[in-house]
């Protein structure tokens, strides 16, 4: 009770801060000077109609590189955090085979749950063939059927999900690629398209729990995209005004698909890198 009062006090104080902020807020009626600069310069100087992409990839390109580095570090640290867990879950099935009663301990992960269910059903079958009508068999059978239903729930997706995945997956990947390569023309870009591609990977893993994502290949792709990204930045340093300057390629016509210098290239590399990284992170959580 005491804790709730303290928490309520904290929340009310924060609410007061927020209320003061809202009270003194006046909606802007004109752009701030820096924003005006960006809005005027981005289409003229970089040739990108989408000003936000221009800011993200060129004016704040170094920030974006840092963000990608953060994502890379998260993928690595998730792998480190969940590594020992994997060795533990390989022990789980043997544990479950020893005592079906220890299902609670083995029910850590869906994989362990399925393994426990399989072990239980095998044990039940063996017991049923050896001695019919003993109390133990009935118990094991009940446990097995319960575990089977758990497996049906956790392991096998329904037919709707599987068929839907077959139809939707190419569409999702195509849409992700579209969003990535049109980042300089319309709403979208590397991060957004990469997230869409990773959502496709997520759907694939939901529909086919048994399938393994090729994490090693994804890591190689991701590393190459990162290296190419940095080398494009260095090319900009040599042939244009500075690091990650996309103007070493011709600017082209405003609004054309091949335009805006190296921005589409950097955007595509960003999309590939983010998509691969997010897919790897999703796969790591599936252990």
């Amino acid at each position: 009770m005491m804790r709730h009062i303290v928490v309520a006090l904290v929340v009310v104080l924060f609410g007061l801060i927020f209320a003061r902020l809202i009270g003194s807020y006046v909606e802007l009626s004109a752009l701030r000077p820096l924003a005006t600069q960006y809005v005027i310069e981005a289409p003229r100087d970089l040739g990108t109609p989408n000003i936000i992409t221009g800011i993200l990839i060129t004016y704040r390109g170094f920030d974006t590189l840092g963000e990608v580095a953060v994502l890379f570090m998260v993928a690595a640290s998730i792998g480190l955090l969940l590594k020992k867990d994997e060795t533990k879950s390989t022990n789980a099935p043997t544990l479950a085979a020893k005592a079906t009663g220890a299902r609670r301990a083995a029910a850590n992960t869906p994989a362990a749950k399925a393994a426990a269910a399989r072990a239980a059903s095998v044990a039940a079958n063996r017991a049923a063939s050896a001695t019919p009508a003993s109390a133990g068999t009935a118990l094991a059978g009940a446990a097995a059927s319960e575990a089977d239903s758990a497996e049906a729930q956790a392991g096998e997706p329904s037919e709707i999900v599987r068929t839907g995945t077959d139809v939707l997956l190419p569409l999702i990947f195509t849409f992700g690629a579209y969003v990535i390569v049109n980042g300089h023309l319309s709403a979208g870009g590397g991060f957004q398209g990469g997230a869409i591609v990773a959502s496709g990977a997520m759907l694939m893993l939901l529909a086919r729990p048994g399938s393994r994502l090729n994490v090693a290949l994804l890591s190689v792709i991701e590393s190459f995209a990162g290296v190419l990204y940095v080398s494009l930045g260095i090319v900009g340093l040599i042939f244009a005004a500075g690091f990650l300057d996309p103007r070493f390629l011709p600017r082209g016509e405003l609004g054309a698909f091949v335009s805006a210098g190296a921005i589409p290239l950097i955007s595509a590399l960003l999309g590939i890198k983010v998509g691969a990284e997010l897919s790897v992170i999703i796969d790591r959580f599936r252990s």
Partner: peptide
């Protein structure tokens, strides 16, 4: 906080 009265998305088209 980035909204401007009667503004639209900053995409030239």
């Amino acid at each position: 906080t980035g909204y401007i009265t009667a503004g639209t998305a900053p995409i030239i088209d």
